[in-house]
Design a binder for these strands. Structure first.
Lengths: 193, 193
DNA sequence: GTCTATAGAAAGATAGAC
DNA sequence: GTCTATCTTTCTATAGAC
């Protein structure tokens, strides 16, 4: 790849990472193109050399957010079977995930926004969701079957709902209960004890 | 109450209902005060006789959304015990709840937005969430105990996560799987079979 | 490809008539 | 209390220099 093409790709990636991070923290509508570009170390005007509109960027930002997310990193760690599942569940249903807005799960914190977007964005979300399920199942080896697939989907729904609700709550005792209740049920559902 | 006070209250309620409906469907940031007032049958200027700002309204809109929601209506239906639980779960984890943006659960579709708001809004959400759990438990009579409370919280998290994710997905086969998987697990968790 | 400057539209909030 | 009119800010997107 020529130098200029490489540099363009580098800028493009920076923009997508910046957008993914800001959309996760503040929501699509609350982030301006100015915010995205300054956060990426550039200025407003350069944006349209990479994306035709803010909406068009959203599609790629969803995929970028998944790539940078904690679940994908856990999948890259080489863990397998129940060890992998425990690792994902413990990290996901933690106070840190509720409090630190910096590294949040895109499946949870982009869901409401994405549900209101056009088809292209929702298709990107669907792809990310399906791939995440599939990759988890592929690391379960002997445990992988249709029943396990159903359990993983249900467990993921519970984890997503738990962190979403918890982040909106002000009562920290209730947040702790939610995390503990859901962790316990997911453990039981996936037979992780 | 004098006529004028009654009329003011009536207008105020209309504004809150209009806002609750629009915030649920489009998200807080995508709805303008103009939208809210026109949807309530009034015009822009009158807004500030009722609320000091759009943010201040949000707090009351969260409570109004819960009052108008399907779960509260199920609680008002007089059902009790497992019959009530089945009724709530079946209505919640349905294609209708995923597709019809008109009457959505505020605990799910306001969560991401509320999590980014100031304390007053999040306190209103916390109050709504706690009350919903408490009211469900109070209708379970003999079934009500600490273990059941844990199960209800976990079940609610799964239901919230399921409809949130499902509404963002484009693959309708996957949506059906999510709804069915979660319904099955919630039934098992709450012993509704 | 990235910059500064700016056009054009939309939004939150206020002023004053009735 | 509700209306129309308007101030001010902010945003998306474009134009033109380098």
């Amino acid at each position: 790849m020529p130098i200029s093409k490489e540099q363009k790709q580098e800028s493009r990636t920076k923009i997508m990472q910046s957008a993914a991070s800001l959309f996760l923290q503040q929501g699509f509508a609350n982030v301006s193109i100015d915010d995205i570009m300054l956060n990426a170390g550039m200025t407003r005007g350069g944006f349209y050399a990479h994306f035709e509109s803010k909406e068009a960027l959203y599609e790629y930002a969803v995929i970028q957010a998944a790539r940078d997310g904690a679940v994908m990193h856990a999948l890259d760690s080489g863990r397998q079977g129940k060890d992998l599942l425990r690792h994902i569940v413990d990290a996901y249903l933690s106070i840190g995930h509720v409090q630190q807005k910096a590294s949040s799960c895109p499946l949870a914190f982009l869901a409401a926004d994405v549900g209101r977007e056009e088809k292209r964005v929702r298709t990107a979300y669907t792809h990310v969701f399906s791939q995440m399920i599939e990759q988890i199942l592929n690391r379960l080896e002997a445990l992988k079957d249709a029943v396990m697939a159903r359990k993983v989907r249900a467990a993921l729904a519970m984890m997503v709902g738990c962190v979403m609700v918890s982040r909106a709550l002000t009562d920290q005792v209730l947040v702790s209960k939610m995390l503990e209740d859901c962790r316990r049920q997911v453990y039981q559902l996936l037979a992780l004890d």
